[in-house]
Amino acid sequence: MRERTLMIMHYLTGLGILVSGTIHVYVVFLTVPANLTAWESTLSFDGFQFAILPVYRNLALALSLEILLICTTYHGLNGLRIILYELFQGRSARTYVKYALFAIGALLLIYGTRTIIIAHSIGGP
């Protein structure tokens, strides 16, 4: 893809992380009153009021997590690409960097999506 498209996507995914990441942090952190017992209940598997895993039985929240995954993968790897383009120069080096990061991104996306789907579908006891 052209550099302009890639970089515009960088800003757009940054915006996407701003929205979906805020939801993610809100769900994990801010529903917790600032005391230790509540944080323990967040990390408990199921059954407590603030437990984190059952939250993702909600399809909308699971989708927002998926959006966060996609946006962060793109934004982070494109950021690395910017740094690596500066460190390794030349046309062939750029091609290597591009395909290596593309492979890492594909792995992250597939594995992360699998986690989200499983977390979404684990039912009650």
Partner: peptide, 8 residues
């Protein structure tokens, strides 16, 4: 991503 993968 790896850590949450182990969680499930």
């Amino acid at each position: 991503v790896i850590e949450t993968g182990y969680v499930v």
